[in-house]
Computed example of a mutant assay.
Amino acid sequence: MSVIFKTLDMTGKAAVVTGAASGLGRMTALKLAEAGCDLWLVDVNEAGLAETTQLLAPHGRAVGSEVADLSDPVACHGVIAHAMEKFGRLDALCNIAGLIYLANTPQMPQAQYERTIDVNLNAPFFLSQAAIPHLLEMNGAVVNVASCASYIGEAYAAAYCASKWGLVGMTKAMAMEFQKKPIRINAVAPGGMITNIATNFTPPENCDFELLKRFSGMRGQVEVEDVADLVVLLSSPAGRGFHGACLSLDAGITAG
């Protein structure tokens, strides 16, 4: 067995995974369970959480789940408290839950803008705020899922880009704050994936599709499984050399 497979062993560790009802969150939960990790799953989709829990059963890990609206800071703190009640420890926080509304900027409803910021940026902050004291005890990790939209402007996605640029900045700022502490805080920036977000893609009215195509990527969609592998790497001791990093996995979208 190679060194990297030894360090990817998460046996006896516990992680919180948000957005776990489908897509990248579900795949990350499966990958963490394969590595031996116990899991606290969070989403607004109760049926999806039940499906993920069922899929995890063959791995024999301890699993708990919680329906929570992460736009509420109180709910974010509650998630961490409930995970600690379940496991008595926390080794990784995987901030995967996210959403996107495409809109012509002058017509974007205030409620959509605010929810984008609340779920994509504020929730990772408040979850981290609650989790960091416990993660410090375990030399643990925070992994934020940003986006290729963290580095380039994307038409009709001003709110989404703002939330994801902010998430990368927050990741780096927190990493600097805890530079002298035994914790790792990193982010992953994937390109487009086949997830519920992509499936429910709705272009704004009267949009210019030439502008949208600029961000589709010449090599197609990124595999969800590949992104999940990277999240697990950063969550595990194998990612010990990463701190304050944002790793792009976007099939070259942001290369130039």
Rank of each mutant, 00 (worst) to 15 (best):
G256M: 11
G153Q: 04
L167W: 08
R89E: 00
A159S: 14
E225V: 08
I96T: 14
N139Y: 05
L247F: 00
Q112N: 15
P73L: 03
R184A: 07
G169A: 12
E205N: 11
G239N: 09
S2M: 06
A149M: 05
M27H: 01
D226Q: 12
T18W: 10
P58C: 05
L99A: 13
V42R: 03
G78Y: 02
P106Q: 11
K164V: 07
E85K: 14
F242Q: 07
V224W: 00
M108Q: 15
N186F: 09
T52R: 11
A111R: 14
D43A: 09
G36T: 02
A255Y: 05
K181M: 12
V119L: 15
V16W: 10
D250P: 04
M27N: 01
S65M: 07
D72F: 05
T195Q: 07
G192N: 14
T254S: 11
E210S: 15
A198W: 14
V188Y: 00
C148S: 10
G48R: 06
R219N: 15
L121Y: 10
G192I: 14
A81Q: 14
G217C: 12
A47G: 13
G244D: 03
I4K: 03
D208V: 13
V79W: 05
L32I: 00
A175M: 06
E137G: 09
V224A: 02
A228D: 02
D69E: 08
N45T: 04
F87N: 06
L30M: 02
A20W: 04
G25N: 01
T171M: 09
K13C: 00
C161I: 04
L41T: 02
I117S: 11
K6R: 14
I185Y: 11
A123D: 12
Q112P: 00
D208N: 15
A159N: 04
V42L: 06
V16F: 09
D208P: 14
A255G: 01
E66M: 12
D43K: 08
L102I: 06
A50Y: 00
I80T: 10
G140M: 05
A14V: 01
D38N: 12
E177T: 13
A15L: 01
I96E: 02
L212H: 10
S150P: 07
N186S: 12
D72P: 04
S235F: 02
A83P: 07
E66Q: 13
K181W: 08
E223L: 14
L30H: 03
E177C: 05
S22M: 01
P182A: 06
G88F: 13
V224I: 15
E210M: 11
A57I: 01
A198M: 14
S235P: 02
Y156G: 08
V227G: 03
I132W: 10
T202I: 13
G169M: 07
S147A: 05
G256K: 09
